[in-house]
Design a binder for these strands. Structure first.
Lengths: 128, 128
DNA sequence: TCCATAATTCGACAATTATCGAACTATGGA
DNA sequence: TCCATAGTTCGATAATTGTCGAATTATGGA
């Protein structure tokens, strides 16, 4: 996933109503939900929701298909996976940002190797 | 991490120059980099970079500390970890979006359980 | 064909975001 | 004290984003 796609995906999720809609779609699974249901569930007018869904679709995070009069949106897990992979590789210190709960449920919440207080530079002070 | 913080963090990363700066900071590690180095490395004017760094700081993704005349920025791995945790929990189907390479290097690139073609709904068709 | 439903597109507007030079603040050295 | 360096803040401006009612398109049933 290239940086441009990543920025588009991040921007698509960086909005209250779009994040809410996407979360609903993730919960809904591959069946998806019609646009109207998303508008109603989030309390957003239909035309506004349509605008937001177009952004999510443009970012590749959701797919859309028509079933009778409804247009069903569904989360694209592969795209989300690509985003997660990019962030893990480029924006985390190795795998440092991932919770290890999926792999090692006993090691939690304390990540060695990344010092929080940086004692090696004593003369520094925080900016107000 | 609450939804508001997540939206702020996503929005902070959803911009070309900020994503570039943050990636540099992640690479730089806990030592961090001064604002000027980030401006020079990205080719962004100092005042613009200052604006972007303020956004990253406001989102909690970077820390800043003064060392002599320089202000050193550093990636906040804990914040990034919080963001990743939120996305994993709320925007992925369980752990479905995470590559298993960190845990199981032999199982790659084909994730069972998430069908890409959804053959169970045959009468659908894509929206043009 | 006619009507109701589901959704998108249009248009106008407000709000936010991005850009960048100029002015300003803080720090440290001569 | 005076000057140079490192950054931020200010101000003006352009561009993008978000909102929502009204108009439009697509579909299916009577």
């Amino acid at each position: 996933m290239d940086a441009v796609s990543v920025i588009r995906a991040l921007g698509a999720l960086a909005q209250e109503h779009r994040l809410a809609a996407f979360r609903l779609l993730v919960q809904a699974g591959s069946e998806g939900l019609p646009a109207g249901a998303l508008a109603e569930a989030t309390g957003v007018p239909a035309s506004s929701m349509s605008f937001h869904l177009a952004q999510l679709a443009n970012a590749g995070l959701v797919t859309q298909r028509r079933v009778s009069r409804s247009i069903i949106y569904a989360a694209d897990y592969a795209a989300m996976g690509g985003l997660m992979a990019y962030l893990t590789e480029n924006c985390c210190a190795g795998e440092g940002c991932l919770s290890e709960t999926a792999c090692a449920p006993d090691t939690i919440s304390e990540r060695p190797g990344i010092s929080q207080e940086r004692p090696e530079i004593p003369q520094e002070r925080n900016v107000s």
